[in-house]
């Protein structure tokens, strides 16, 4: 239980990058003209077990842990069962328009910029 209350950063400091990423999905963030893309690598997990929650400007992606089977592991390099990762969203995102898609173990969350934050050209009158 101590492990789970520990912040990811602390866990990372304590056990090293490899252990951190063994249980935490890697994330790419891409900035596009009118939105951000959050790409989470969640290999081996089913779409149905993933929840995406937006609370204010905080976005949490989590997995409903399934029962741990007693496999005889010779080598264990990844185990994302029951992960949770939270992102702080910047104020220029329209949180009501967040949507997501899933393909080949990659969860892509699209975070559109609010209309005020979108780039625009102002014509001179």
């Amino acid at each position: 239980m101590k492990q789970s209350t520990c912040s990811p950063a602390k866990r990372h400091m304590r056990h090293g990058m490899r252990q951190y990423y063994q249980h935490t999905p890697r994330v790419n963030v891409v900035k596009q003209a009118d939105n951000y893309l959050l790409q989470l690598a969640i290999p081996g997990l089913a779409k149905e077990d993933i929840s995406i929650d937006v609370n204010g400007f905080q976005l949490t992606v989590s997995h409903t842990a399934s029962e741990n089977s007693n496999f005889d592991f010779i080598n264990k390099g990844f185990d994302l069962n029951g992960f949770s990762r939270t992102f702080k969203l910047s104020q220029d995102i329209d949180v009501s328009k967040v949507h997501a898609s899933f393909d080949a173990g990659v969860l892509t969350i699209s975070l559109p910029l609010s209309d005020n934050a979108k780039p625009r050209t102002i014509s001179i009158q």
């Binding site: 081996g44 005889d72 010779i74 390099g77 990844f78 080949a104």
Partner: peptide, 21 residues
């Protein structure tokens, strides 16, 4: 890629994490 290897009674299973391919 990260790898899991499981030993079962009848087989071995290798799992490679290679998302997005």
């Amino acid at each position: 890629p990260r790898v899991n290897i499981v030993k079962n009674e009848k087989d071995y299973i290798i799992e490679l994490a290679a998302p997005g391919l």
